[in-house]
């Protein structure tokens, strides 16, 4: 792959052995309730990292702290370090707007704005001051192509983003996230509301996207995690009777699914398959 892409090659060499993100001693509180605790995790450049685990163990909460989306929940508080290229973004004074541009997010249900397909994709670039029509046209086309949606919508760019199918809407949302040229893409169960064919398309798309981006995906679907990801974090409630979620095992996806070290991981992974 690298032979075909000089640019990519130099990029990887430049950042060799460097993690895109590093999470250290992270804990998330809702009021006094400690929802997520003691998280240590690395997000590697140009890899897909999956977060799996049972419902209610804090997967989405953890993901949402990566781009400071938890700021939007008034009672939420995030402690610990979140390093993006070595710089802690979980400190006051960091430009949240810039963090969210560099770390994009795709949500569980397709949520295109009630605007045209074009305006959906152009929304982000316009926020950052891109005004000229030529520039916008270029960004829109490039983003839609990256999201593997261009061929399907190029003749109806000015139709409503809600007029296309659910799977197409989700790819539109991915294109919308790509349009601001993020470095990391967070995906919160991006295919859970989609049919199997649309799911497959999203998964194929992720394989394409990881050549240029670092991806973190939360998923309920263990087969999906096994299929698409390079690394897997297994989350569970930390102790019996306690309500805090934590990462109990973080490893190569293959290792997690074939020879898990933690008994709970093994139970979870095999239980669902068996």
């Amino acid at each position: 792959m690298d032979n075909h892409n000089e640019n990519q090659k130099s990029k990887e060499q430049g950042k060799a052995a460097m993690n895109k993100m590093e999470i250290k001693d992270l804990a998330v509180f809702y009021g006094k309730f400690r929802a997520v605790t003691d998280i240590q995790m690395d997000i590697q450049t140009n890899k897909i990292t999956a977060i799996i685990g049972p419902s209610g163990c804090g997967k989405s909460t953890l993901l949402r702290s990566f781009n400071r989306m938890n700021d939007l929940t008034p009672s939420a508080r995030v402690e610990g370090q979140i390093l993006l290229d070595g710089e802690n973004i979980n400190v006051p004074g960091v430009d949240v707007v810039d963090v969210r541009r560099r770390i994009g997010m795709v949500f569980q249900r397709p949520n295109p704005f009630p605007k045209s397909i074009y305006d959906n994709v152009a929304y982000g670039p316009r926020l950052y001051g891109v005004r000229r029509k030529n520039d916008l046209d270029e960004i829109v086309e490039k983003s839609l192509k990256q999201a593997a949606l261009w061929e399907e919508v190029k003749d109806k760019l000015h139709q409503s983003g809600l007029s296309i199918s659910g799977g197409q809407q989700q790819r539109l949302c991915i294109a919308r996230a790509l349009a601001v040229e993020p470095e990391v893409i967070l995906m919160d169960e991006p295919a859970s509301a989609l049919d199997p064919i649309s799911t497959l398309k999203i998964e194929e798309l992720m394989q394409e996207l990881k050549k240029e981006y670092s991806i973190v995906i939360v998923t309920h679907n263990m087969q999906q995690a096994a299929r698409v990801s390079d690394y897997t974090a297994m989350m569970m409630l930390s102790k019996e009777g306690e309500r805090s979620g934590t990462v109990i095992e973080f490893d190569d996806t293959k290792a997690i699914f074939t020879r898990p070290k933690d008994k709970r991981t093994e139970d979870y992974v095999t239980g669902r398959f068996g």
């Binding site: 989306m69 939007l72 949520n111 009630p114 926020l127």
Partner: peptide
Amino acid sequence: VPHTLREASLGLGAPEWKTSISVVLPA
């Protein structure tokens, strides 16, 4: 207006007022 629409806009880095005017109001 679904909460997820607001989040999509805020997640792109849009400030609250911008989200209100260009996403929530049209919806």
